[in-house]
Design a protein around this nucleic acid. Sequence first.
DNA 1: CGTCCAGGTTAACGACCGCTAACCTCCCTG
DNA 2: CAGGGAGGTTAGCGGTCGTTAACCTGGACG
Lengths: 200, 200
Amino acid sequence: MATRTDAPTRREQILREAARLFAERGFHGVGVDEIGAAVGISGPGLYRHFAGKDAMLAELLVGISGQLLTGGKRRVAEADGGAEAVLDSLVEGHIDFALDDRPLITLHDRELDRLRDSDRKLVRQLQRQYVELWVEVVREVYPALTEPTARSAVHSVFGLLNSTPHLGRPGALPGRGVTAALLHRMARGAFAAAAGDAVL
Amino acid sequence: MATRTDAPTRREQILREAARLFAERGFHGVGVDEIGAAVGISGPGLYRHFAGKDAMLAELLVGISGQLLTGGKRRVAEADGGAEAVLDSLVEGHIDFALDDRPLITLHDRELDRLRDSDRKLVRQLQRQYVELWVEVVREVYPALTEPTARSAVHSVFGLLNSTPHLGRPGALPGRGVTAALLHRMARGAFAAAAGDAVL
DNA sequence: CGTCCAGGTTAACGACCGCTAACCTCCCTG
DNA sequence: CAGGGAGGTTAGCGGTCGTTAACCTGGACG
């Protein structure tokens, strides 16, 4: 595995800070000067790295959707142990993402409409593929679920897992592992209940 | 029950449209002219009804939080049949809200930071009380849950229930009743799983 | 050693937007 | 029927913000 150990490039640095600021105050709520200040350069200096403010948001959202989809596909391909294990792996991957990249999770479903048409279509397509990936696996585990119901259930579980930004600052949590385990249990419980399994 | 049958006042009309627009494009993304146009008057005419754009957002968010809390308290007081029934009533009430006022649900956790300090504190306090209401009931139903865990679980279930805006346009759903029932099952399943009950 | 480019800087322009000012016009009421 | 307030209108001010222009600078390299 080619884990990157390099120092982050300036571009990456900018993207990280932009994501944080966008998540905190909304796309229209932060100015380019603030983003620049966050990385130690000032305002227009950003234009040496990005075509404009929109381009930063686009790269962030496309990146997120792409990463989620790629990671999901990888887990589906690699997991061994049947559909149950695949679903657990998907849940685990999504939770890792939701816990480690909370600003991105926030942006992901909040600022999509600020994109140019072409970018928005691309992101939507990636998101849709990711959802379909889950729907297939979920229906394999719970054959009782119709496709529309499974899709609704998947969206709802995403809502559950993406609630991490509301769980208080990272320090206030009972500990990352504990939180991850809780979210995992709840997600599986929600799916099981969606399929009508007894929950008591 | 004093159901209101009056025609909506202009103020209410403005608030409804403002909520829809804020949810669609974000607080900073819509101008006062657009809000005016949505109710058939133009731009500055709004200032006969509100002190400013901020005041509209404040009234919306305070209103939402207040309604949720009031409705929750009422359900806790009125429900008969023990803690299980109370929890079911809370879930039902929240789902009604999430399905009927989707723009407000969106605003509720998206634009809080755009408020003046005093308003934000008020909204946060109302939200906290609402959460605590749920936490108490949940811990009554599932005594195995510690308080922090119960609180995390409640936030996560809110995320699940508030996912309704992502479920596609109101027409594309399998039908309101079916969707409500699905969300209800999933919420209860998630709580049960949080408490460690067997989900299979 | 000269030169060139990557990556900064500050100044400033143009557009937009929230809000106020000034004015108009019904309609209700004494 | 006079008058006044509720609820509109348009014009325009002032500030903010994204973006561009013009300029500077240090280091890589032929």
